[in-house]
Amino acid sequence: MKTKIIFITTLLASFFVLSAQNKQQEIVIIGTMHTVPKIVKKSYKPMLKFAKKYKPEAIYVESPMANDTISWEYLKKGWSKGYQKFYKLSDSLQNNFNYNDSKFNITISKDFSKMNNVDLDYLIKCFIYKRDHGNYEFYSYIKKYGVHGAKKPTRHEDGDLIYKLALYMNHKTVINIDDQQTNKEYHDAWGKCSKEGVSNGNNTANSKLYKKNYNSAILPAIFRGLGKHTNKRKSLQQLHDMASFSYVVKDTEGCRQGRKYFDERNMRIAKNISSQVIKSKKNRNAIIIGAAHVIGLEKEFKENYPNFKVVLMNDY
């Protein structure tokens, strides 16, 4: 009898282990509005509630990867003053800072509540040294607002959604997945497409789509439903069409180039995410990214990474 009990117990244990190993890795994509106006400053609150309920094992954010030298080569003199400043700091610290991996691991392993300003300053310097912008911003946020986050809305996805979620889940780091290798070319193509669209109806079509998207968001925004509205498939498709120049009535060279660069950026972001999700072996993964990228990423995952279960926020 004892032998039978041991056999059944072992069999059940093996079954549960095998079941866990074979569980499909899941990706939930949350589309953000980046910075929201003061009048709708609490728009991220319902999104945070959803994300907390989902309880992701990993949080992926729209920030350049530390080892993406091509993106940083552009960003060090690119569109963002913040990235320019960060790159200069990182360049300086890589020459002057005495980074110690053991000390970093000991410090970051502390409970958030046990970290003092000395610890936070050290971690911030480490992330600058590593050229890890996402976590440099995360720990700068903790130092400024404390372990419970900002009391008042920051009106941005980082402060109102990402960092509060990471603190709630006790995640010591967020994961960078952005790619800005061809951002200059994309913006050049945008300008070219706009010039070409003056007389062929493209700019008129874009203006109509923008107004349609904007007007449909007014009522949801008033009733704190902007996040949910933004993540409706119809809204996501409109944002995708505007960003990828899919709205055009007459395709032109500039619009085709812009679409190419936008699609390729989504392709590389999906690749960045996929490689890290596979490596992590975690099953519940939240991708928090600008809403215009959601449809493109969903397409990339379904076509090239079919082993993932990909769900959009409003479909979960």
Rank of each mutant, 00 (worst) to 15 (best):
T3A: 15
I5R: 11
I6R: 14
I6Q: 13
I8F: 15
T9G: 06
T10F: 15
T10N: 15
L12D: 15
A13D: 09
F15M: 13
F15Y: 15
F15E: 10
F16C: 08
F16W: 08
S19K: 09
Q21C: 14
Q21F: 14
K23E: 14
Q24D: 05
Q25M: 12
Q25Y: 03
V28G: 00
M33L: 12
V36S: 01
P37D: 06
K41T: 15
L48V: 09
F50K: 04
F50T: 04
A51V: 05
K53S: 13
Y54G: 03
P56E: 00
E57A: 12
A58G: 09
A58H: 02
S63M: 13
S63G: 12
A66S: 14
N67E: 11
W72D: 06
K77Y: 12
G78A: 13
S80G: 10
K81A: 14
K81H: 11
Y83C: 11
K85P: 06
F86E: 01
K88Y: 05
Q94A: 05
F97A: 09
N100T: 11
F104P: 02
I106T: 15
T107I: 12
I108W: 10
S109Y: 08
K114L: 04
M115V: 02
M115L: 12
N116Q: 12
V118I: 11
D121Q: 13
D121S: 13
L123I: 06
C126L: 12
K130I: 03
K130S: 07
R131I: 03
R131P: 03
D132G: 02
H133Y: 15
G134H: 06
K143H: 10
K144T: 06
G146Q: 12
H148N: 11
P153E: 09
P153C: 03
T154W: 00
H156L: 15
D160Q: 07
L165P: 00
L165T: 02
M169E: 07
K172V: 03
I175K: 00
I177H: 04
H187Y: 13
A189N: 05
C193D: 00
S194V: 07
E196L: 11
N202V: 02
N203W: 08
L209C: 01
K212F: 07
Y214H: 08
S216F: 04
A217I: 06
I218A: 10
L219R: 03
F223C: 14
F223A: 12
F223G: 07
L226Y: 07
T230A: 09
S235H: 09
S235K: 05
S244K: 01
F245V: 04
S246P: 01
Y247M: 01
K250R: 15
E253S: 09
C255I: 08
K260T: 10
Y261S: 01
D263K: 14
R265A: 01
R265G: 02
N266Y: 02
R268H: 08
A270W: 00
N272S: 00
I273Y: 04
S275P: 00
I278D: 07
K279G: 11
K279M: 11
S280G: 07
S280E: 03
S280R: 03
K282R: 09
R284M: 10
R284N: 11
N285L: 05
I289N: 01
I289M: 05
A291D: 01
A292G: 10
A292W: 00
V294Y: 02
V294L: 04
K299W: 11
K302W: 08
K302S: 08
P306F: 07
P306C: 07
F308H: 10
F308L: 09
L312V: 04
D315Q: 09
Y316P: 04
